[in-house]
């Protein structure tokens, strides 16, 4: 019981922000919250939010762990492109589905381990280390696709992107399961605590006997794996791999989701579920803007303004001044004795 209460208190700012965004969109586009069951699946704008949030949600899972170690991973968007290209080319070549999925996940893992070794072993600053793959990754993906949008027609693979299981779209199932799996892995084991310790004070953690290097490789590997799953979904969704555009700039949305989720870029305490809610907030905004009917020139401005407001409300400075304002109002109602 107390555990649930603690969790809710941690997630409250994000849940409230999500609720406010949803309410605002519903006011603008009344049909927004409408969900029906048709064609054997749940259907409606809320489902669109959940489905379209999948890539950023998946990236934000790995990104949360990376940021908890005081790192950052700019390469995950490019990893989506690489794994998507690998998957599409293998599907087009007729390999069995299981082989395709394992190969894509393996490639994503490899990308993550590469980043992890650069950061953990060679001690390159994370932003620089992952920039390498961010820039080179799209080139690698283009080499695999030979510069074209590599399309295929394999319903079993497309199912990952547009299919549904028990009425729930597959992308939703995949990101929720991945979030649960990694969340449970780090919280049921001691990984989460050790990652937080490394993020807060790597030197002290090292002196305690925590294997910081291993943990750093682990978090980047997890980020790569999450990107690979996202790559599979994105590729299956459009039945093709678009090396130029797949996952483009999504690393930034993922970082934003983590920040909205209240995990500090300076490392330490993290919450995967809060990051996932952050991803939903971002996607709710995107879908809300699409459905609002406003001209596209406003898209980015609206998104930026709403996010600034959400982040500002979370900042301790604003929280304190709001509290102070509340005190002033109380003072005005009931004047206190003057102080010396």
């Amino acid at each position: 019981m107390t555990w649930i209460a603690t969790r809710l208190r941690r997630l409250a700012p994000q849940l409230i922000a999500l609720a406010l965004v949803v309410v605002a969109i519903t006011l603008i586009a009344p049909g927004f919250a409408h969900v029906t069951f048709q064609n054997g699946r749940l259907y409606g704008s809320p489902m669109d939010v959940l489905v379209r949030a999948a890539p950023v949600a998946l990236l934000s899972i790995g990104m949360t762990l990376v940021i908890a170690t005081k790192g950052i991973d700019l390469s995950v968007g490019a990893t989506i492109a690489i794994t998507g290209a690998v998957a599409a080319s293998m599907v087009a070549a007729g390999h069995p589905l299981a082989v395709v999925i394992l190969a894509a996940l393996g490639v994503g893992l490899l990308c993550g381990v590469w980043n992890g070794l650069l950061v953990g072993l060679i001690d390159i600053q994370p932003i620089i280390a992952t920039l390498i793959l961010m820039v080179a990754g799209r080139g690698i993906a283009q080499l695999i696709t030979e510069g074209v949008i590599l399309t295929f027609n394999r319903p079993a693979f497309a199912f990952l992107g547009s299919g549904a299981f028990l009425g729930v779209p597959m992308p939703v199932i995949l990101w929720v399961l991945t979030g649960l799996a990694i969340g449970l892995l780090v919280r049921v084991s001691a990984l989460g605590l050790l990652i937080e310790a490394v993020g807060i004070n790597r030197r002290a953690s090292m002196m305690i006997g925590i294997r910081a290097r291993f943990l750093i490789v682990f978090v980047y590997a997890a980020a790569g794996l999450c990107a690979a799953i996202a790559g599979l979904i994105v590729t299956a969704d459009i039945k093709g791999a678009d090396a130029n555009n797949a996952g483009l700039w999504l690393e930034l949305d993922a970082i934003l989701a983590v920040v909205i989720g209240g995990t500090a870029l300076s490392g330490g305490r993290f919450s995967i579920s809060a990051s996932l809610i952050g991803a939903l907030i971002i996607q709710a905004l995107n879908t809300g803007i699409l459905i609002s009917g406003w001209p596209p020139e406003f898209n980015l401005i609206i998104k930026a303004v709403v996010i600034i407001v959400i982040l500002a409300l979370q900042s301790p400075v604003v929280a304190n001044s709001l509290a102070a304002a509340a005190r002033v109002r109380a003072d005005l109602k009931e004047p206190r004795r003057s102080r010396t």
């Binding site: 084991s189 001691a190 990984l191 305690i208 925590i210 943990l215």
Partner: peptide, 11 residues
């Protein structure tokens, strides 16, 4: 933390 580090993350 030190005891946990010695046991390893899996325990």
């Amino acid at each position: 933390l030190a005891l946990q580090a010695r046991r390893g993350w899996a325990k």
